[in-house]
Simulated assay, not measured.
Amino acid sequence: MFSYEYHLSNLHAGEYRDLLVASTLGERRPVDDLERINTMCRNADIIYTARHNGKLVGAARSVSDFSYCTYLSDLAVDAAYQHQGIGKKLIAETKRLYPQALLILLAAPAAEQYYPKIGMERHNHCFLLRDVNGLK
């Protein structure tokens, strides 16, 4: 049985880094910089976790204005626990907290097909700026 727990800035950086690596999301996150991971955990507005016998097996980490939009920065589920509905449950709990806020996320390449399957709408109008010097 899984327990879903709501935490605000209560996720330990080392534990979260281990989950990122186990979920393959670590390939796109600064897992070698524990202080940065710690800052990511500390400054998130909403963190939902899934635990199995106390072990962190899933997490949804978001930033929000609590009214108009919530950006789901990371959805990570340990690869050994995937395909059990954990990610969907974490998304649902995040959305339920502020139902009037639009839930937005950028899909990892390996997860692009997952989100439409669970009922999320694809949106083609997203833009990224990685470096201010890229502005023309």
Rank of each mutant, 00 (worst) to 15 (best):
D18H: 06
G54P: 13
C126G: 15
L128W: 10
A76I: 04
E35N: 08
I118V: 12
K88E: 14
E15D: 09
Y6G: 04
A80N: 08
D18P: 07
I37C: 08
H125P: 00
V31E: 07
H125S: 13
A108C: 10
S67M: 05
H7S: 14
M40T: 06
Y16W: 09
D131G: 08
V57F: 01
F127I: 01
A80T: 06
F2S: 03
I37F: 05
Y115T: 09
C69M: 14
L72Y: 09
C126A: 15
N133S: 07
H125A: 15
P99Y: 04
K55H: 00
L128Y: 13
D32V: 00
D33A: 04
N38D: 12
Y16F: 15
C69I: 01
Q82I: 00
L19N: 09
S64H: 01
L8M: 11
Y81D: 07
P116I: 15
T49R: 09
H83R: 10
I91G: 08
N53V: 02
G58I: 02
F66P: 01
G54Y: 00
A80P: 06
Y71C: 07
I86F: 06
R29M: 11
H7K: 15
S9W: 03
P99V: 07
L128S: 13
H83V: 04
A80R: 05
T49E: 05
R130M: 09
M1N: 05
Y115C: 09
D33K: 06
T70L: 10
V77K: 02
L19S: 07
I118S: 05
H52I: 00
R28D: 11
F127G: 06
N133A: 03
D32K: 04
C69K: 11
L25P: 00
V63T: 02
L8F: 13
F2Q: 08
V132N: 07
R130Y: 13
G85F: 11
P109N: 14
E27S: 06
L102C: 15
N10P: 00
L106K: 14
A60E: 06
H83I: 02
A13M: 03
G119N: 05
M40I: 13
S23Y: 10
R130L: 12
V77D: 00
A108N: 14
F66T: 11
A13W: 02
D18A: 02
K117Q: 12
D45H: 10
D32N: 05
G26F: 06
L129Q: 04
L75W: 08
A22E: 09
V63I: 14
G58D: 03
E5G: 07
E5S: 07
Y71G: 07
L8I: 14
A79P: 00
